[in-house]
Amino acid sequence: MEPSRILVLDAAPGELLARELERLLDHGLSVTLNLRRVADPAGTRAAWAGRMRFTDFDAFDESALIAETVRDGIGHHAIKSRAGVPLRAAFLAAATDAALTHRLRVIGRAGAGTDHVDLAAAARHGVTVTHTPGSNANAVAEFALAQLLALTRNLPDHNSAAHQGRWSTPSAPAVELSDLTLGIIGLGRIGRALAARATALGMRVQSHTRRPAESPVATTDSLHALLATSDVVSVHLPLTHRTRGLIGRTELASMRPGSILLNTARGGIVDEQALADALTTPTHPLAAAAVDTFEHEHARFASPLSGLPNALLTPHIAGMTGSAMTTAALRCADHIAALLGGRPDAVPVALP
């Protein structure tokens, strides 16, 4: 029986690349590796020659993605993505065309979240979408705390001053974490991991969640109540049609004076323009924000938050630790192989 074909759009980085490729090959998959984001493409090609095929294209260019997926009318049974390459209706229609020798059956994301996939179109075309929820929970929770500490202790400004040869001292005493109330929006795996760590550091923690009965911390009756009674608000929700624009001008205006907003979830949940306007208004209750996810990312990155001194911005790196990425890459390979082999039990599947 001919092995199932998988196109790896963006392989795991560094030493993890070999482990991911070996896992895919161990599952008996026929691998085509996109070298575009591989650090050493020539070395990788030489090391794996004869064991897989290679290509090189910009997966974020939909026309290039479609062309490579359906090259020579052969097609692929599975697509693996890490960085959230958009997989929309046009791509899904092309990748499942009946004229292809092998129609797309599975999309795997080595990471949490599937907002990069048009799930309704995938369902229409019979494509199963899987991901690795929880694989980066500890990493993102730790990153949120790092964001908070950087802002409450004003580390970016002190670092900049020292590099400029200036000895800066705080204009006012900083607060300790135990002085603050943390409000968590969304109490999934990441939210719970953050709650546990913040509690251990002495913070008062409360949450707003759809399932308050299952919450290990105090809950508020409404989002407004959480925003109005928290010194720090951390967002941990998936991006869906229900959560898009959840935090806008009205919500930001209801926050506690001197408060901080953290977003390591998804761009689009927080209105970036409304956030930028809040941060540039001296009388606004919001004092600072740390944002790791944006409406437009990668080559399309642009944000009204750029250049604001009270906005700590990072390029969607919260979940990028060795442990988290290893777990995600290997688990994703296992999920894809299980689905292709007709073994869907215990594999997380995203539905429209």
Rank of each mutant, 00 (worst) to 15 (best):
S222M: 01
R242N: 15
L119R: 12
L227R: 00
T130N: 11
P41Q: 04
L21M: 04
T96E: 09
L7C: 08
P348Y: 00
T199C: 11
R88S: 13
L24N: 10
I260G: 12
L261H: 02
V205S: 07
L151M: 14
R37K: 12
P170D: 05
S215A: 09
R82E: 15
F54D: 07
G245T: 11
A289Q: 02
R5M: 04
L194G: 12
A338W: 04
A253Q: 11
R45C: 09
P173M: 04
L149R: 01
A42S: 12
I269K: 01
L7P: 10
S81I: 02
L151I: 13
D56L: 00
G183E: 07
G73Y: 01
G307F: 08
L252F: 08
A90L: 06
I66D: 08
V270Y: 04
A46I: 10
P304G: 06
I317C: 13
D179F: 10
R192H: 00
L177W: 05
A120P: 13
A150D: 15
G322S: 12
E2M: 14
L180F: 09
Q206K: 08
E15P: 15
H335G: 09
R36W: 12
G258F: 03
G73F: 01
L339K: 00
S254R: 10
P41L: 03
G165N: 10
H163A: 13
A198Q: 08
R256G: 13
D231S: 11
L187M: 04
A350S: 15
R88W: 14
D292L: 03
A11R: 02
